[in-house]
């Protein structure tokens, strides 16, 4: 396949940046999207041009390091991460526009790499259950209803990639936040800190500059782990209750 790539190039955080166009030949259907970029980088290196910087690590769809807005869709046209997107989703002759996640809370570091440390800080501000090592009771001493445990698991599969923020016109991180609130809030172990957690986490979310949610659902559609919109409802509900309870 032969492709035309329009890629955002930006030398560093303070650089203005612009889309640059590249022609790439010899792309195979079996390549992953990132392997296609590897190929481009090999070509750029050969031509003494600096390779395109982009994030990736596990390349099996679980670490959440890869990102990329591909033709206006977070992680591209399939419901998966960019590293699991394959070139058979594209056709010979396609033009592909590749941009970084765009949000003031995710400042661009270089080219397609953004700084998502805001997510770490949201977790730092309550996204845990306080259980010091060694202080845990026997694991089976507190049963957890199976359906609640399942919901906790389903929402705990969030990989923290930031696609929800990238896809949201408000740049809200509500899906990320709601997923953690729901995960911990569904488990018996998460109850003691349930309402203080939601308060401090939303406080950090807002302080980081993430937008408010308008319930339009772009985040859930972009989520490679298919976290449903109902975690945002859960977040809202817990916050509403926290106004009274905590």
């Amino acid at each position: 396949m032969k492709l035309t790539l329009k890629i955002w190039r930006q030398a560093n955080a303070s650089d203005k940046g612009a889309l640059k166009t590249y022609e790439l030949d010899g792309v195979s259907q079996d390549m992953s999207f990132l392997e296609m970029l590897d190929l481009l980088n090999e070509q750029l290196l050969h031509n003494d041009e600096e390779p395109v910087a982009f994030d990736s690590d596990c390349r099996e769809g679980i670490c959440g390091m890869c990102s990329l807005m591909i033709n206006g869709e977070a992680h591209g046209p399939e419901v998966t991460t960019t590293c699991q997107l394959h070139m058979r989703s594209f056709k010979d002759g396609d033009t592909i526009t590749i941009e970084p996640w765009r949000a003031a809370s995710f400042p661009i570091v270089k080219d397609l790499i953004v700084d998502r440390s805001a997510f770490d800080r949201i977790i730092q501000n309550g996204g845990y259950i306080s259980a010091n090592t060694g202080s845990a009771p026997e694991a089976n001493s507190v049963p957890a209803p199976r359906d609640k445990a399942m919901r906790a698991f389903n929402t705990a599969t969030c990989i923290g990639c930031g696609a929800c923020v990238a896809a949201c016109p408000n740049g809200s991180a509500s899906l990320f936040l709601g997923a953690k609130i729901t995960h911990l809030g569904e488990l018996p172990q998460g109850q003691p800190e349930r309402y203080s957690r939601v308060q401090s986490m939303i406080g950090q979310h807002d302080a980081e500059g993430f937008g408010g949610c308008t319930n339009i659902g772009e985040c859930a559609a972009a989520c490679p782990k298919e976290i449903p919109l109902d975690v945002i409802s859960q977040l809202n509900k817990d916050l509403r209750k926290s106004m009274i309870l905590g």
Partner: peptide
């Protein structure tokens, strides 16, 4: 990178929600 600005004592009533 981190630990610069953690918000303390956030209040529900002041949130975007």
């Amino acid at each position: 990178v981190a630990t610069t600005t953690l918000i303390k004592g956030a209040r529900s009533t002041r949130s975007t929600i």
